[in-house]
Design a binder for these strands. Structure first.
Lengths: 136, 136
DNA sequence: CCATTATTGCTATGTATGATAGCATAATGT
DNA sequence: ACATTATGCTATCATACATAGCAATAATGG
């Protein structure tokens, strides 16, 4: 039976996102990174001297949840903390972190390519702007 | 700072789905239903005499996770179980379940309308087919 | 017909994610 | 200077989703 909920954009959005996240998680697993950790690495490279709080605000991760994520990345030797003032710290990539990020980017670029390839050509260019209209 | 990951369809998909799910959960909360429970009610009405396993397969919810979901709906008096054979049971809506579902449908219809309204007109009709190409 | 296999519904359990509350410290602004 | 806000963190809880295993039943194929 064909899914009777598939005509609802909200439901389709949920199913598409779940399928996508599962697949991406599988592909990042060999790098010992979860999706959120990979996005942190990506962000940290692009934004010089971001603090934990700033990362959280940009990725919509609560401060309380940033702590264990960064701890994991630090233990793995991928990031280190650099004091900004006596309270804040900049998160920066270690050399190992940069290497890992390069691998992440290969995985993600390939993944995004395949993702778009699955969308019929007529709709392809509309996907990103449509999605970006749906979050604040 | 604008989010430097927003150009990736996969990331935009995740953020859009998260924002959407949060909003929908908020709107369903007054009905004492979670999103997954609301979708079960919807499905049960449209498919006569579906079993727990069939619901799970259609909504991509594991059998093990269906059990507590259905238990909650049953305790709330919204569904009841009707024997099919000595092993399987059909899940059917009670009268209270039908009433609750009507309320759910009002919430969801309004929600889906607003969701689509946020998408610029040029992209609107492409969203659903693009999303439905992304899950199996 | 009977033995094997598959399916159903369920419990128990683990893990990832997201949220809240609270806390000590430090920075900010009026 | 003092009240307010921000930071980084711990502890804790709820939800979602996954696996393993189990007892009963159904379905299948030699």
């Amino acid at each position: 039976m064909t899914d009777p909920l598939a005509h609802q954009p909200g439901y389709a959005l949920r199913r598409a996102a779940n399928a996508m996240m599962g697949e991406l998680a599988t592909r990042l697993a060999p790098l010992s990174l979860r999706v959120s950790e990979a996005s942190i690495l990506t962000l940290v490279e692009q934004c010089k001297d971001v603090s934990s709080s700033e990362i959280g605000r940009m990725l919509d991760i609560k401060r309380a949840n940033m702590a264990p994520l960064l701890a994991r990345l630090e233990v793995a030797g991928l990031i280190r903390r650099q004091p900004i003032d006596r309270k804040s710290q900049a998160i920066v990539l270690t050399p190992a972190g940069e290497d890992r990020l390069a691998a992440v980017q290969r995985v993600i670029n390939q993944f995004e390519r395949e993702l778009l390839a699955r969308v019929p050509e007529a709709h392809r260019e509309h996907l990103l702007p449509a999605l970006n209209a749906l979050w604040p």
